[in-house]
């Protein structure tokens, strides 16, 4: 694919470059909407479109006012704080429970493994609107609707499947002879666990935790039903912002979130590489 062979016909050349052009357009379709919001968020006027001043790169056409508004608004300040509180607590719960369960489930002859795995990852499978509806009904019955605990529990439930899957994936490539060697060399199970198992699964746990964090941080359907204004998160605030009075503040928030996701993507990639390196160390 990289280089066309010398016997390529003219038709072949035309086809090849047409194909590349089509791919280019599709990549543009993927990335353009995300990139376009960045300049728009620096708009000096409250519209979602490019002004003439912006197009002629007149500095007057650009301003930071939406970023300032975002940082000064009490609504958004509360949303940022809540987002982090909810995401951090639900990440802690889901990472802890998910990692434990993954360790348990990784045993080769665990009874009803597939069924239990199916049940445990069901929050990922069921459409969010249905989880949201069910949680709304049930949590209002037991008085958790509209509380931080309710939202944290709901988000933790949605995030555990991701932790479970990533940690399980790490354990699949886990070389069991390492723990056995540790045991034959006289290490106690606890020591083996902390000296051998933990360092090897840490990348998986961290990426699982990152997944969990993003799941909660980005989650918008369940919070709309289980949460209320007091638990408003950034997505909650964005959703109501888009529905009510749409202002470029939303675009400023979107830009910040995009930068966060780029950071997150980099972190995941680094973790993946580290994980591969660690695997490379394990004797096959």
């Amino acid at each position: 694919m990289a280089k066309l062979p010398p016997y390529t016909t003219t038709g072949g050349y035309i086809w090849h470059y047409t194909y590349l052009a089509i791919c280019g357009l599709i990549f543009l379709f993927l990335i353009f909407p995300i990139l376009v919001i960045v300049p728009l968020s620096f708009n000096a006027i409250p519209y979602f479109s490019f002004t003439e001043k912006m197009l002629s790169f007149d500095p007057e056409g650009y301003s930071l006012r939406w970023y300032i508004e975002f940082l000064n608004s009490l609504n958004w300040q509360g949303a940022i704080k809540n987002s982090f509180i909810i995401a951090i607590f639900s990440t802690i719960i889901s990472t802890f429970l998910g990692t434990l369960a993954a360790l348990g489930l990784s045993r080769p002859n665990f009874p009803f493994k597939t069924t239990i795995m199916g049940i445990l990852i069901s929050p990922m499978v069921v459409p969010l609107i249905i989880s949201a509806a069910g949680m709304f009904f049930f949590y209002s019955r037991i008085g958790l609707q509209g509380t931080f605990i309710g939202v944290i529990l709901a988000h933790a439930a949605l995030a555990t499947p991701f932790v479970l899957i990533t940690v399980t994936a790490t354990l699949v490539g886990f070389d069991r002879s390492l723990t056995r060697s540790a045991a034959t060399l006289g290490a106690s199970p606890t020591r083996t666990f902390f000296k051998i198992t933990v360092p090897l699964i840490t990348p998986g746990v961290i990426s699982g935790a990152l997944f969990a964090f993003v799941t909660s941080f980005d989650e918008v359907v369940v919070i709309l039903f289980v949460g209320s204004y007091r638990q408003r998160t950034i997505p909650w605030q964005m959703f109501s912002g888009i529905r009510e009075q749409i202002s470029p503040t939303i675009l400023a928030v979107a830009t910040i979130l995009t930068i966060l996701s780029i950071l997150m993507l980099t972190a995941m990639e680094l973790l993946r590489r580290r994980n591969e390196r660690m695997r490379g160390m394990a004797p096959k």
């Binding site: 429970l97 369960a101 348990g104 239990i116 509806a133 009904f137 049930f138 933790a156 439930a157 555990t160």
Partner: peptide, 24 residues
């Protein structure tokens, strides 16, 4: 041991997710 490791998550999912779905 492995059953004990899985139990907390199982109960958690039961309480926070499966019961709400059943409720619906």
């Amino acid at each position: 041991t492995s059953l004990l490791l899985v139990t907390p998550l199982f109960l958690f999912i039961l309480l926070t997710f499966l019961m709400p779905i059943t409720d619906m």
